[in-house]
Amino acid sequence: MALRFKKPSVLPGFGLALGYTVLYLSLIVLIPLAATFLKASTLSASQFWHIVSSPRAVASYRLTFGASLIGALVNLVFGVLVAWVLVRYQFPGKRLFDSLVDLPFALPTAVAGIALTTIYAPNGLLGKPLASLGIKSAYSPLGVAIALTFIGLPFVVRSVQPVLEDMDKELEEASASLGANRWQTFARVVIPTILPAALAGFAMAFARAVGEYGSVVFIAGNMPMKTEITPLLIITKLDQYDYAGATAIAVVMLLVSLLMLLPINLLQKWSSSRTANDAEVPTEELVPASV
């Protein structure tokens, strides 16, 4: 049997739709990305290595990845908590809180950046009390972590929420009837159920934070070696017309984000394979048998 590219279908328009999709994708995304790798390949291996392993670049990686990790970890813990509270409890203003969880997706990063800087500046609403405790928040690595926590906030919540909503109450009842206390039920029944979704959200928040620029540049202080994130280093090099340097660092960032796609996809598959088992049952349950 001959291998076929496409399964036969009576619907029209496949050629046109796929052709346009591939053309537009190539023009906007693939060719420009390929040109970037091509540009980087005009550097010799030792030149490339010299740029990407310079102390200033390494310091920027350390800050970018470290602060992203802290932000994603904070979001892992608080995201699960927020999802739990929004799904399981009733309280006034619940719908408002629920819809505003998405604000970091909708609010332009520059707006978030200047707002966070105003709050955490030494004379700001939270910056002042923190400063009196001897903690410098804005213009320090802590400020970077705060901004990255903000922009990653919705990922874990939105990834865990549907899993908690679909979760059968029977599982927890069974656990309780077998003698588990509430904490044991949570640790051994609830957490394993939401774990893949929570980790997928964590990985997405981390990946987003690594590339983030707008919300960080205002609050970071941008001191080379101290509070300079990697995306800012790329811009600095561009401003100095150091195109080769900017490209080399950009390639490192591109490779990291491509590498991040793999665990994210695997976690999402793991998560949806868990919920898919439940999803096959429901339609009858929604409809009373007597209709």
């Binding site: 060719i31 420009p32 990305l33 970037t36 540009k39 990063t109 590339g211 490209t247 960032m253 991040m260």
Partner: peptide
């Protein structure tokens, strides 16, 4: 998954 800064850079390089 591409950093916004890199998204701009690719067009500068082109």
């Amino acid at each position: 998954s591409v950093s916004p800064v890199v998204s701009g850079l690719i067009y500068v390089l082109l």
